[in-house]
Design a protein around this nucleic acid. Structure first.
Lengths: 320, 320
DNA sequence: CTTTGATATGCAATTTTGTTCAGCTAAAAC
DNA sequence: GTTTTAGCTGAACAAAATTGCATATCAAAG
């Protein structure tokens, strides 16, 4: 139970200042120096306040006109994969920024599409983290957030537990977490964990969710699942050798979207992949070149209703 | 009928470029130089594209956390004036920017509160122009915009006709205009104009609106009504001598909100002030020191349900 | 073919913004 | 009382954005 400290404490706890500075800077168009006079703080501090405001999503940038090409891709994706909705954003120029861009779009989508009373089942990933980060902190009545994944033992900045908690806080939701590690040490342990009453209870709640939000992971070197070290490099190789192209909800799947037969997949403490079909709306948030294969796999064998992605991935998915 | 040319033609008609540049700049955080490489245009052109994007409201800045003090003012205003809703934004540091800030808030409010099927009766003013400008260009089904004011004979950039048209275009609404000058030369002419079938028809439509959006004008020197010259300086003085504190829907009113008895008020071609009560939701969008008196007057004798203003004005209204 | 005028482009100077680093303060530990 | 540490702060520098101005481009008119 130890270290889930809410490290949220921002460097500038004064929301007042952040909001005021943001108004003067972004809306009124004043210079940082002028703002420093008005607020009576140093110019550099104004700069830091503004940085923090962006960082924490106090200011949100919204781009209204969509890019023509992206709109066409959205249409094609909907048709090709039977989606009810698709959002395609321009690809990031720097590969590593893809999660930022897609997360931004996901935040906008969620802000518009989460309604009072909704129950959100949440996956995990860098893209989702960005999405949650950019979400407005506006309470939505009677919402619930349920994590579909166990937590990390060594508390990391990017953590299913942390993400669920942060989302819940933003929209003022009740929050249910899986009080187990995402990967048990051995399959029998997993079974023991999962059969616990408290865990079953959370899984049951997830099953009753009306919205699932999740992303997929690839084997690329900067993937968190590869770096955090709870899967050994040797296991990653074995998985790839067994045909895995990536993971969805921490289940490793092959190119057809089927769960690969490997011990790791028997150690995962998560909402069962095949049960996603019980959730009416499934939102898949992922993009970037390196995710194309696993996204195609996920779309092939998992019911996805909404896809939020970028141009690169959209094109890749459509060019078979 | 002459010169209502839609001068909208922006310097950068390519919405594609604007949207792409905005994504890379504001969301991805790239430098303008980097973007110029990606888009294959000059660095300075990128800058100009971004300016245009802001200018035309392709990028929108939204500040989520509100300023504590402003929230308190909102509560007080609601109580004091029996409003159903109030929005208070920080005051602009430069007096002349007040319309920018308040317009921004009004745009956000309208974006959230205009629903399919709504009929919007529209007033006129610089603040409203900014609001419309910042509104997302997103069609809202079956909406209608009706101008509550006549037009200007010498087409000016700031013009009731132009504003209504622009709003209609943004939300994909049908648009009805009063095909007469806002001030007739003589009272009898006004009566003749207003009794025209086409005019009556538009006024009738305005009366059936469910939302009225309007602002008030003061006598300050930078007020458009003073500068555009369709009211003579001598008349402005007479009006003030007669107790007028400003105008609402181009009707000049005294401190109690009653229409001042003066010829100018018998020449105005506009939706009748007292008939505002026929419209369920009336949104008053105005602020800044110099508008306090006329805002108080308007609130005293006109049914206002929503007030969007700034700190200065809010404080002024509350300190009697 | 040249002129004219309107528009677009990029250079260069200037302003604004971002970053790094060393010093300062104050609370906690010794 | 001194040391340690963490957190701020702003000066100085580096990078980026902005603006005025001169030049280029192109279409219509002469």
């Amino acid at each position: 139970m130890a270290a889930i400290e809410n490290e949220k404490a921002s460097r500038f706890p004064d929301a007042e200042l952040k909001a005021r500075a943001a108004w003067h800077y972004y809306v009124e168009g004043l210079t940082q120096e002028r703002i420093s006079e008005i607020l009576g703080v140093g110019r550099i501090k104004v700069h830091r306040i503004l940085s923090a405001a962006r960082e924490e999503g106090v200011v949100q940038f919204r781009i209204r006109d969509s890019v023509v090409e992206c709109v066409q891709l959205e249409e094609s994706l909907k048709q090709r994969f039977g989606l009810s909705h698709a959002v395609v954003v321009p690809s990031a120029a720097d590969r590593s920024n893809a999660p930022l861009m897609i997360g931004h779009a996901a935040a906008a989508y969620l802000a518009d599409n989460v309604n009072p009373g909704d129950v959100i089942a949440l996956g995990w990933g860098r893209t989702l983290k960005f999405a949650i980060n950019e979400l407005p902190r506006r309470p939505i009545a009677r919402t619930t957030v349920v994590s579909m994944l166990g937590g990390l033992t060594h508390a990391q900045p990017l953590n299913p537990t942390e993400s669920a908690w942060e989302l819940a806080e933003k929209i003022g939701a009740e929050c249910y977490l899986l009080p187990v590690p995402v990967y048990a040490d051995r399959p029998e342990q997993r079974d023991a964990f999962m059969s616990q009453r408290s865990v079953q209870d959370v899984v049951f709640r997830a099953r009753r969710a009306n919205i699932a939000v999740l992303s997929v992971g690839s084997f690329s070197s900067d993937s968190p699942i590869a770096n955090y070290g709870f899967i050994k490099p040797s296991e990653l190789e074995e998985l790839q050798a067994a045909g895995a192209v990536g993971d969805i909800l921490c289940h490793f799947i092959d190119a057809e979207g089927h769960i690969v037969d490997h011990e790791v997949n028997r150690r995962v403490c998560a909402y069962p992949l095949q049960d996603l079909s019980d959730i009416p709306t499934t939102i898949l948030v992922s993009g970037g070149q390196e995710k194309i294969a696993v996204m195609r796999a996920a779309l092939a064998n998992t019911k996805v209703s909404v896809l939020i992605t970028d141009e690169d991935a959209a094109k890749g998915l459509l060019n078979r």
